[in-house]
């Protein structure tokens, strides 16, 4: 038990350290980056809850981020702005204007509900069929977001979402997500699910209902993704459906894979590392572009580097930086070893 608490303390401490550091510096750019990092952390942890425990790759995750973001946006855009932002909105929704904090939670719940309904039958598929269906689910969600103009303003940018997410809020949610991901991992469902990942036949023989376990993990993951999406919406304040598609999927997946999908520690460290690298590269890209060294705009460096890093990690350290043990367990082990040695 104590090693779980140690893990929570270290990972939460890392987030708090970031917040304290950024607040002390007081530079606005850093504040934005740190807030984005915390939101990414929520999304990565959500994906870790499903992928890390079930061992199945899911592409649908970012779709649920979108569901959360749009739900929360529709519920919070001020009534007088709705006529402009969402001219075709259904009458029932026109008058509604909730506090963003309540709407963020509703965003998570709606994402979880959509996931619960859509995914139950999908959870008995494995391997390629599971991956292709999750990809299909992402495309379906994206197509609906792009074309359901009444609620999403179609492919156009939806603006007027009230700003409610600041660094302390994002950090607090990130810490909660760390706790949730660890709690789920150590719960009965999480343990059984990981046992089934390692040996599907044996777990089935024990009478474990694998598809039901996967479903629970998927719904929880979608809830976290929905919260993350809503947080992001209230931070960025205007967005379009393209924000919730393959590029974002790639970035979030890259963070998880580099850190190590099987551990919460891996999810956290991966998010920190990739965000750090991304922001530095983006700064370089920006500098190159404003210096006009090249005739054309330089874009795509960040993705190229992240893709190379992902492939390198998969080749040389396929489990990621933290493949099996949480940081708390690693340190506890080191400590006892040293005690034995002395």
């Amino acid at each position: 038990m104590s090693r779980h608490l140690l893990t929570i303390a270290i990972l939460a401490g890392l987030v708090l350290l970031l917040v304290a550091g950024v607040e002390a510096l007081g530079i606005r750019v850093f504040n934005r980056i740190a807030t984005n990092l915390c939101i990414s952390l929520v999304l990565v942890l959500g994906l870790q809850i499903f992928m890390g425990n079930s061992g199945i790759l899911s592409f649908a995750h970012i779709g649920f981020m979108g569901v959360g973001a749009y739900t929360s946006a529709v519920l919070t855009i001020p009534a007088q702005m709705k006529g402009m932002a969402l001219p075709d909105l259904y009458g029932v929704l026109q008058g509604i204007q909730l506090s963003p904090y309540i709407a963020i939670i509703i965003g998570g719940l709606v994402a979880a509900a959509v996931a619960a309904v859509l995914s139950y039958p999908l959870m008995r598929l494995s391997d390629a069929a599971a991956v292709i269906t999750s990809f299909a689910l992402l495309v379906v969600l994206h197509t609906v977001m792009t074309n359901w103009s009444n609620v999403t303003n179609g492919p156009r940018t939806l603006f007027g979402v009230p700003r409610a997410t600041d660094l302390p809020l994002a950090a607090a949610v990130a810490v909660l997500a760390v706790v949730a991901a660890l709690a789920f991992k150590e719960s009965r469902t999480g343990r059984l699910l990981r046992a089934s990942r390692d040996d599907e036949v044996a777990a089935g023989a024990l009478g474990v209902h694998i598809s039901h376990l996967r479903w629970r993990a998927f719904v929880l993951a979608a809830f976290v993704a929905g919260i993350g999406g809503a947080l992001w919406g209230h931070f960025i304040t205007s967005f379009s459906p393209n924000a919730f598609y393959l590029r974002e999927t790639f970035v979030i997946l890259g963070m998880l894979v580099i850190g190590g999908a099987n551990t919460v520690t891996g999810a956290v460290i991966g998010t920190f590392l990739v965000t750090g690298a991304f922001e530095s590269l983006r700064a370089i890209e920006g500098a190159l572009n404003s210096a006009r060294i090249f005739r054309e705009q330089v874009i795509g460096v960040t993705e190229v580097v992240l893709a190379l890093a992902m492939i390198a990690i998969l080749i040389f350290r396929p489990g990621g930086l933290f493949p099996t043990r949480e940081i708390g367990a690693l340190l506890a082990r080191k400590f006892t070893k040293r005690k034995h040695a002395s």
Binding site: I56, L253, G300, L314
Partner: peptide, 26 residues
Amino acid sequence: VRAKSVTAVLITSFAFSTLLQNAALL
């Protein structure tokens, strides 16, 4: 990565797809 796991190969192919597209952008 082939010997490692099905998921690892899938993620690699997804990463490679992104890599090639962004190399073209760049």
